[in-house]
Amino acid sequence: MAGLVGALLSGFVDALFERLASEVVNSLFQGKTGIPELLNRLEIQLRSANKLLNHADEKQLTDEDVRKWLDDVREVHYEADHVIDKINYEALRRNAEEGEQSGSKKRKFINFMPKFYSAFDNTIKSEIKEILAKLDPLLKRKDELGLTEGVHQNRPQRLLAPLVDACDIYGRDADKKAIVELLLSDHNGGRKLSVIPIVGMGGIGKTTLAQLVYNDSKVQDHFALKVWVTVSEEFDVLNLTRQIIEAITSEKCDIQEQYRLQDELKKKVMRKRFLFVLDDVWNENYVLWNALRSPFDLGADGSKILVTTRNETVALKMGTVQAHTLQMIPDDDCWKLFARHAFDNRGSGFRGVERDLAE
């Protein structure tokens, strides 16, 4: 499963072009050239972009250029949706109007409409060409951004939390402050490496909190190496080690043997203070965790691993400090969050609700 953007868009193209499959819509451009060919090209290009979403979702957490690329792809999808809405509406409108005409009135109606129809066709052609003009360069950037198709398709994944801005988060200031203090602390209880678990039920905001902390300017400046890995259900030591190496080097790692992989990771972290985020961990097998963490001991004092999990047993086995248990946010903050999304950050509606909650 792709990340959040991928999940939202992966089924988008199928749904989008299913709306063009009706007999009414097909009759709209019957016998014409130009628009059907443009729509076919648009579908092919959108499907090509969707094949890159899995990899882009993984890279966006640590690569600002990929994050911007995903935003641009999402905007293109929305523009395509708008154009196809217009096509559907026009097809239904014409079908209804022509159905109401009869006899000589129908002939007069048909004779009157070609100019109008031609104007609509030209507008749609222009809008599709504009979308393709935006989409084509995005697809050409895949090599520059290091994006490949179908990355990690066989590895179970979950929906990622959306990338967050601190001003859009409610009720987590105290949680963020507590985690940041732990990360910046040089006291690791006599250990070089400290593992900090964030525990809470699904959907409560563990990943969102981890993102807030990971992107905090003080945290960014404090660590020489920073890596984010989404683990999910399959705790594959080789694959996770390889992902960490690739994140550090920004290069593909083809090493297959465990000893060589771990030796390579030891070299990358040696005497460097690092922060690794292991997001959505389910594994309770301490042997696997111990195998993954063994190269980390060569890092500099003050290195940290931040783990998010729903499972208290996982937190107990992995953590070197008491787990930070995430609670529901207060009711007032729930309402503020609801109001922001309900009103889509627009107009006086959201401001009015936020003002009322503050009073």
Rank of each mutant, 00 (worst) to 15 (best):
residue 94 R to I: 00
residue 76 V to Y: 02
residue 205 G to M: 02
residue 166 A to R: 12
residue 176 K to L: 09
residue 201 M to K: 10
residue 306 L to W: 02
residue 6 G to F: 02
residue 23 E to T: 12
residue 123 T to M: 12
residue 108 K to V: 13
residue 356 D to W: 14
residue 77 H to S: 08
residue 215 N to M: 11
residue 155 R to E: 12
residue 346 R to C: 09
residue 88 N to C: 15
residue 111 N to G: 11
residue 217 S to V: 11
residue 23 E to R: 13
residue 191 R to C: 10
residue 333 D to N: 14
residue 328 M to K: 15
residue 231 V to C: 02
residue 223 F to H: 00
residue 302 G to V: 03
residue 290 N to A: 10
residue 264 E to Q: 13
residue 324 H to A: 02
residue 90 E to P: 01
residue 89 Y to P: 05
residue 241 T to E: 06
residue 12 F to M: 04
residue 119 A to H: 14
residue 270 M to L: 15
residue 75 E to L: 10
residue 283 N to L: 06
residue 58 E to F: 01
residue 247 A to R: 00
residue 48 S to R: 11
residue 259 Y to D: 15
residue 228 W to Q: 04
residue 158 R to C: 11
residue 11 G to A: 08
residue 120 F to A: 03
residue 345 N to T: 10
residue 214 Y to G: 04
residue 5 V to G: 01
residue 317 K to E: 13
residue 154 N to V: 11
residue 35 I to T: 07
residue 359 E to H: 15
residue 37 E to G: 08
residue 9 L to Y: 02
residue 185 S to R: 04
residue 36 P to M: 10
residue 146 G to L: 00
residue 261 L to F: 02
residue 190 G to D: 11
residue 63 D to S: 10
residue 127 E to V: 12
residue 6 G to Y: 00
residue 26 N to R: 15
residue 79 E to T: 08
residue 167 C to A: 15
residue 61 L to F: 13
residue 213 V to Q: 01
residue 293 R to W: 10
residue 206 K to C: 05
residue 59 K to C: 09
residue 50 N to C: 12
residue 261 L to E: 03
residue 213 V to P: 02
residue 88 N to F: 13
residue 18 E to Y: 09
residue 80 A to S: 07
residue 58 E to T: 07
residue 182 L to D: 04
residue 112 F to Q: 13
residue 47 R to D: 06
residue 245 I to N: 02
residue 159 L to H: 08
residue 144 E to H: 11
residue 285 N to H: 09
residue 156 P to G: 04
residue 262 Q to E: 11
residue 311 N to R: 07
residue 329 I to Q: 05
residue 112 F to G: 09
residue 226 K to A: 04
residue 207 T to Y: 00
residue 324 H to V: 00
residue 233 E to G: 10
residue 314 V to C: 08
residue 341 H to Q: 14
residue 268 K to I: 10
residue 16 L to V: 02
residue 310 R to W: 03
residue 109 F to E: 02
residue 85 D to Q: 13
residue 39 L to S: 05
residue 206 K to E: 04
residue 108 K to A: 15
residue 28 L to A: 03
residue 255 I to D: 07
residue 97 E to R: 15
residue 243 Q to V: 10
residue 60 Q to K: 12
residue 141 R to S: 10
residue 121 D to N: 12
residue 167 C to G: 15
residue 76 V to P: 03
residue 270 M to G: 13
residue 185 S to D: 06
residue 77 H to L: 06
residue 162 P to H: 08
residue 319 G to W: 03
residue 235 F to K: 06
residue 277 V to E: 02
residue 304 K to V: 05
residue 159 L to K: 09
residue 345 N to F: 11
residue 303 S to I: 00
residue 91 A to F: 04
residue 186 D to V: 07
residue 209 L to N: 01
residue 29 F to H: 01
residue 307 V to L: 04
residue 242 R to A: 08
residue 56 A to H: 08
residue 183 L to F: 02
residue 143 D to S: 15
residue 291 A to F: 04
residue 76 V to C: 09
residue 146 G to Y: 00
